[in-house]
Amino acid sequence: MSNKTKPRVLALCALALVAAPLSAHADAAKDLQVAGRALTFLENGPTGKATLGVVFDPSKPASVAEKNAIMAAIGGGMSAGALTVVGKPVEAGDVGSVSGVAALYITTGVNAGPVGAAAKGKKLITIGSDMSCVTSGACVMSVSADPKVEIVVSRSAASAVGAVFKAAFRMMIREV
């Protein structure tokens, strides 16, 4: 590689590194919007202002990055129909003592089993973007907005926390 091409290659690599986190922010924002709307379909679900605990593992960079993207997407409050979602970062080990949250969003990389068990004990809805969280029964629902909106609900996890979804919503989701 010539000395003239090195700066161009380095600049291109730097742009790629900068663009990668931006795409993660866009996905988090879309997934979060879907999650917020899904909460409005709960029978006796939250209304007005609701706090979403964003569960992350500080030892896992991907989990921290997703938490940061979600918190950035929420900002001072994200509207989802009649619901305004605000965020609260929660370390995975602190879920058992968390209070004041309407639901928990489990970031990718968190050991969902213990988090899901603690959430069930507190009757909290758990949401994640990782399908394995739902299929394991640790999350009540998995949301994904890319390439198309997909919401998957675990019947057993929903039942364990007393979550009942409106009939109109159940027609739009897949249950496992």
Rank of each mutant, 00 (worst) to 15 (best):
K30S: 13
V101G: 08
S63D: 03
L52R: 12
A72T: 14
G137L: 05
V85K: 03
V101L: 09
A35N: 06
A117T: 05
G100W: 09
S132R: 14
V143E: 00
G48R: 11
G93T: 04
D27S: 15
L104W: 08
K88V: 00
A92P: 03
N111W: 09
L12Y: 13
V9A: 10
S59L: 13
S142M: 08
C13L: 14
V176C: 09
N3W: 12
S23L: 08
K49V: 11
S59G: 12
M171N: 14
N3P: 03
V161G: 00
G36N: 06
G87C: 07
S97K: 15
V98T: 11
T84Q: 05
S2C: 12
G116T: 01
M71V: 00
K123F: 04
M1Q: 09
T84L: 01
L52Q: 10
F41C: 02
I127H: 03
L52V: 08
A38K: 05
A19Q: 10
G93C: 05
G116N: 07
C139N: 13
S79E: 10
T126G: 02
A112W: 06
F169Q: 05
S99Y: 10
A167E: 13
P114N: 07
A35V: 03
V176T: 09
A160K: 13
F56I: 07
F169N: 06
P58K: 14
V143Q: 00
A82C: 01
T126R: 07
A29R: 15
G45M: 11
A24V: 15
L42C: 06
V149G: 01
R170N: 08
G77S: 02
P114G: 05
A16R: 05
E91C: 00
A160Y: 03
L42P: 04
I70E: 06
A157E: 12
V18W: 10
A65N: 10
P61H: 04
M141S: 02
I151W: 07
P58D: 08
V161L: 13
R174L: 04
S79K: 14
K67P: 08
G162I: 04
L15K: 13
A11Y: 12
I125R: 08
G36V: 08
M78C: 06
T84R: 10
L17A: 13
P61C: 11
M172F: 10
A168G: 04
